[in-house]
């Protein structure tokens, strides 16, 4: 077996890998925030009095959850221009990721809202608080506290799925790996290193969200 692993290229490649990782982190930060916000609206819509709104949200959730992310991405990037909607790769990626994540977290947030005892909002209503204040100040913080672990997992899953946005030429971690690989002809070593970077990112992301979640949600807001 004449093959010897060669990591000699790595020195010159650290810059590319780092810039790819920065893009991956950027994508997931924007997506997490936008996706969580959207899913709060989704969960409210799902519990709306209006049947049309309920059906609409349910349809969106089912559509996204039952088709692959890659197909959604291709559809948004290559298919939507037919209606004059042209998004640059990064915007298309953020839109696809946000829509995808929100479909999953709509269910998660909804479960959290349902977990808050009814008595809470009734008590608040008795105190004369407006419905919106009750929702933002009382219900939502408690719901988020319950669902934070599930939300964290969903964010990590989304970060890992974001590897496929390299397919529409977003210059994130996988894209840079593909570029390096085409230049060095060292496919295995390149993907090995980048996989480790992903592993590091997902461990760090989980830790970060866990500590942040414990501090701000369990401590401060509730």
């Amino acid at each position: 077996m004449g093959y010897a692993l060669d990591f000699g290229w790595l020195n010159g490649a650290i810059g590319m890998i780092a810039s790819g990782a920065v893009m991956t982190v950027f994508l997931i930060v924007v997506t997490s925030i936008a996706g969580t916000l959207l899913s709060i609206f989704g969960a409210i819509g799902r519990r709306s009095r209006h049947a049309i709104l309920r059906k609409l949200v349910a349809g969106y959730v089912e559509l996204i959850r039952n088709t692959p992310f890659l197909v959604q991405l291709f559809f948004i990037f290559f298919g939507l221009p037919r209606f004059g909607i042209r998004l640059d790769p990064v915007t298309a990626a953020i839109l696809a990721m946000t829509l995808n994540m929100a479909a999953y977290s709509t269910e998660i947030v909804g479960a959290g809202l349902d977990a808050v005892p009814k008595g809470q909002s009734e008590a608040a209503k008795a105190l004369g608080l407006r419905p919106r204040t009750i929702f933002i100040k009382i219900i939502l913080p408690q719901a988020l506290k319950v669902i934070f672990p599930a939300l964290t997992s969903q964010i990590v899953i989304m970060m890992l799925e974001s590897a496929v946005v390299s397919q529409i030429a977003v210059r994130e971690l996988t894209y840079e790996a593909d570029m390096l690989q085409a230049r060095t002809f060292r496919a295995f070593e390149t993907y090995f290193v980048v996989t480790l970077v992903y592993l590091g990112l997902s461990i760090a992301l989980r830790k970060l969200l866990y500590t942040a979640g414990r501090r701000s949600i369990a401590g401060g807001m509730a």
Partner: peptide, 23 residues
């Protein structure tokens, strides 16, 4: 932890390009 902490796409790439190196 390894499989849940890395992208499936990378796992596929590693198998696809890695196993031939092992013969």
């Amino acid at each position: 932890g390894l499989f849940q902490g890395t992208p499936l796409l990378m796992q596929l790439f590693l198998l696809f390009f890695g196993l031939p190196l092992l013969g």
